[in-house]
């Protein structure tokens, strides 16, 4: 863990709870589960300049689980990709920041997503283009585990391995909960590592809330596309939100919001 990644994750968690609560918006649990991944990427792994987010030499981060928009915006707003005051207008009339990640009018976002299963093909195309131009930028795609149900994941996973896209990393937010319940009772994914291995990918499984583990694996050189299966807890960091499909949809009441923020702020960097 680093102080920077810890502080960013903590601050963005608070904002995510505030934003979804104020907007009465869904998907707070989805955002909290992937917050540590985003915080590690943006502080210790990728190269990107918030003041020049379309620079050719930036690393690309494509968030395929577009419903976790509040978390993405909380990270980008905290890092000054745009004015943090935008966050308080999340999902309100006329706001740039809606309930699914958009690159339209929002600096720092590569693609507008929301319909699941779009991120990996986009990332494969970007990685292939970067390789064909003999450039060295890396492409990170962050997807949910539920969206691995989509066939596009596996179509493009085949192509990524076929073309040895060593500049492509897929991070799976493996919180094991999807829309109506457990991923394993909905449409079994395990053994997920074996599936990707058989597709020709390098596979790493890590604790998706352990910053040291995340940073280490995300900085390792690759010789083929890599999937990082980040084992996470939906709603992580707020005891009453953890591991519950309820918080895929529900937004915090003012009392729940305050309790959640108190719990987030109580966590100490160690």
């Amino acid at each position: 863990m680093t102080q920077r990644s810890f502080t960013l994750a903590q601050e963005a968690r608070v904002k995510t709870v505030e934003m979804t609560s104020a907007a009465n918006a869904s998907h707070v649990g989805s955002g909290l589960s992937m917050m540590d991944i985003l915080a590690c990427l943006y502080t210790e792994v990728i190269s990107i300049d918030p003041a020049n987010p379309k620079s050719q030499n930036r690393d690309r981060v494509i968030v395929s689980k577009g419903h976790a928009a509040a978390a993405v915006y909380a990270i980008l707003g905290t890092l000054d990709f745009f004015d943090a005051s935008w966050l308080s207008e999340y999902c309100s009339d006329g706001s740039m920041l809606g309930g699914h990640v958009t690159s339209h009018g929002v600096p720092g976002v590569e693609f507008s997503t929301g319909s699941l299963g779009h991120g990996l093909p986009l990332g494969v195309g970007a990685a292939l283009g970067i390789k064909r131009r003999l450039r060295s930028e890396r492409v990170f795609v962050l997807c949910s585990d539920g969206e691995l149900d989509e066939g596009t994941t596996w179509e493009s996973a085949l192509l990524a391995a076929h073309h040895s896209l060593s500049n492509l990393t897929l991070i799976v937010d493996r919180n094991r909960i999807q829309s109506l319940g457990s991923t394993e009772t909905t449409l079994r994914l395990d053994p997920l590592d074996k599936k990707f291995e058989s597709f020709g990918w390098e596979v790493s499984s890590v604790n998706g809330h352990d910053h040291s583990e995340l940073i280490k694996v995300l900085l390792q050189p690759q010789t083929s596309p890599r999937v990082v299966i980040a084992n996470t807890v939906k709603g992580y960091g707020i005891s009453f939100m953890e591991n519950s499909v309820y918080w895929h949809y529900h937004s915090a009441s003012p009392e729940e919001r305050d309790a959640a923020i108190h719990e987030i702020r109580s966590a100490k960097y160690a």
């Binding site: 693609f111 990996l120 093909p121 494969v124 195309g125 283009g129 131009r133 179509e155 192509l159």
Partner: peptide, 21 residues
């Protein structure tokens, strides 16, 4: 040639196009 995979074909094309192709 992306193989017989039209959905990923178009997504990949969009990714390539975003890189200037």
């Amino acid at each position: 040639n992306v193989g017989i995979a039209e959905q990923s074909m178009v997504g990949i094309a969009a990714g390539l196009a975003s890189e200037g192709f």
